[in-house]
Amino acid sequence: MKKQNAIFSLVTITAILFACSKRQAEELKPTTPTGPTAVTTANVTYTNFAGALFQTKCNSCHGPSGAIKSVWLFNGIASVKNDSRVANSVLVTKTMPKGGSLTTNERELLQAWFDKGMPE
Rank of each mutant, 00 (worst) to 15 (best):
N43G: 08
T45L: 01
W72Y: 07
A15P: 08
A6H: 05
K22P: 03
S21D: 02
I68H: 07
N5T: 08
P64T: 12
L53K: 00
N43F: 09
P97F: 05
G99V: 01
C58Q: 07
E26Y: 07
C20T: 14
K69E: 04
L17D: 03
A50D: 10
E27D: 13
S9P: 05
K94C: 07
Q24A: 08
K22I: 11
A6L: 04
K29P: 03
N88E: 12
S84F: 07
L91A: 01
A112N: 03
S65W: 07
F54R: 09
T41L: 04
S21P: 06
K2R: 14
F8D: 13
E27L: 09
N43W: 02
A19R: 06
Q4Y: 13
N5C: 08
N105I: 15
L17C: 11
E106A: 01
V11Q: 10
D83T: 14
P64H: 03
A52M: 10
V11H: 07
F8H: 10
K3H: 06
S84G: 03
S101L: 12
T103E: 10
K94L: 15
L10V: 03
S70E: 14
S9V: 04
A15Q: 09
I16L: 14
V86H: 01
R23N: 14
A112R: 03
V71M: 10
G76C: 00
V90W: 01
T40H: 06
S101M: 10
K2P: 05
D115K: 12
K69H: 03
K3P: 02
P30R: 05
F18G: 15
R23T: 14
T31N: 00
T93L: 00
K98Q: 10
K3I: 04
T12W: 13
V71W: 09
